[in-house]
């Protein structure tokens, strides 16, 4: 069991960090070019030349293109109208149609954004070329930079979150399975007749898992540093300190589940139920700000949401304790509460 506890998170971290990315490369597009002009070709070349797009060929009409999407041979259709170049030259504006397969909503909006930025670029070039005298640049110059993750590198963004996730899963499962396992195999019967106190018992259950999870975190941080090159901007000891409190909370929750259930199956379903909700609402995969208000409020009881936030603040932003102390105190109070419940709920007598 012990090797599993250490190897699985490592594997998960290595695999998930590379795969849990929102970047879309290789958007496959087909073109329905009804103009066949030099302008239309230029636009298409812009797409083909982008690292994000792969040209899947030209099709004679829209029907065929739709078919390609239908058969999942393409993700996006670019339709260029017959008089594209002519309109562009004569009327100074022309239209193209962009159709995106939105079976995966978030992927579709990204693909759309990529395509629009290419077209915008193209637009600008035309303006410069056609109207060199009039064009003085766009009235508002927009230049953006991404703080704390300048290259918008998803790995930098995801690894701290995934690390939290793995430590949470390990802690939650080890603890929630534990007491109930003793109930199932009957060892608790003999233990309950001994003078061991509730507090000693819960402490005995908590401490080994706490140590294991902390070691898992240290391994994960080492991997993050040397495999993914993520340097903890803030104080690593601050991170360990917050984690140590956070783990007491998660372990307390797991132990509470374990004292409330009678079979490992029940314990497993209950911990999964909470974990899935906590993970999906935590802001790891989707920003909390985009959730409905009630969901944001529900996150007040989501330990993962607090911890991912603090973790990213320390690791990426270099925040000090004062920056997140309110969240930390909530976590600490929550931990005391959960552990207290678990201790109270553990009955040495039925």
């Amino acid at each position: 069991m012990l090797p599993i506890i250490f190897i699985i998170p490592i594997v998960q971290l290595l695999v998930l960090s590379y795969t849990a990315t929102f970047e879309i490369k290789n958007v496959r597009f087909v073109v329905v070019d009804q103009d066949h002009s030099s302008e239309s070709r230029k636009l298409i070349d812009k797409f083909s030349g982008s690292a994000f797009f792969t040209d899947m060929g030209h099709l004679p009409d829209y029907k065929a293109a739709e078919n390609a999407v239908q058969h999942d041979d393409a993700d996006q259709i670019i339709v260029i109208e017959p008089d594209f170049e002519k309109d562009l030259v004569n009327e100074h504006h022309a239209q193209i149609q962009l159709v995106t397969n939105a079976i995966n909503g978030s992927a579709a909006s990204l693909m759309n954004a990529y395509a629009i930025s290419i077209i915008n670029n193209f637009n600008k070039e035309i303006l410069i070329k056609k109207l060199p005298l009039k064009f003085k640049g766009m009235p508002i110059q927009l230049s953006s930079s991404f703080w704390y993750n300048p290259e918008l590198d998803y790995i930098t963004y995801m690894v701290p979150g995934i690390l939290v996730l793995l430590v949470t899963i390990i802690a939650m499962f080890l603890s929630s399975m534990n007491i109930v396992k003793e109930k199932e195999i009957g060892t608790i019967e003999q233990l309950n007749v001994t003078p061991i106190t509730k507090f000693e018992f819960i402490a005995g259950k908590l401490i080994p898992f706490w140590i294991i999870a902390m070691i898992d975190l240290l391994i994960g941080l080492t991997l993050a540093r040397f495999v993914f090159g993520i340097v903890i901007v803030g104080n690593p000891f601050l991170l360990l300190f917050v984690t140590s409190v956070y783990l007491v909370l998660v372990l307390g929750m797991g132990l509470l589940v374990s004292t409330l259930t009678n079979t490992m199956q029940q314990a497993m379903f209950i911990s999964w139920f909470f974990l899935v909700i906590f993970i999906l609402m935590s802001g790891l995969f989707t920003p909390i700000e985009s959730m409905p208000v009630w969901a944001q409020q529900l996150n007040a009881i989501n330990p993962l949401a607090y911890f991912i936030k603090i973790n990213r603040m320390i690791m990426l932003k270099g925040s000090g304790f004062a920056d997140f102390q309110r969240d930390f105190y909530i976590l600490a109070a929550y931990a005391v509460l959960m552990l207290g419940f678990a201790t109270l709920r553990y009955r040495k007598r039925a």
Binding site: I185, G186, T187, Q190, P195, I196
Partner: peptide, 27 residues
């Protein structure tokens, strides 16, 4: 009291000696 339940209730994954030491220390 010393109680021996009907179902074997010691830790299967501990050795004989570890089980004994464990219960000794609890008391």
């Amino acid at each position: 009291i010393g109680y021996m339940p009907g179902r074997f209730s010691l830790y299967m994954d501990l050795t004989v000696e570890e089980n004994l030491n464990f219960y000794a220390r609890i008391f």
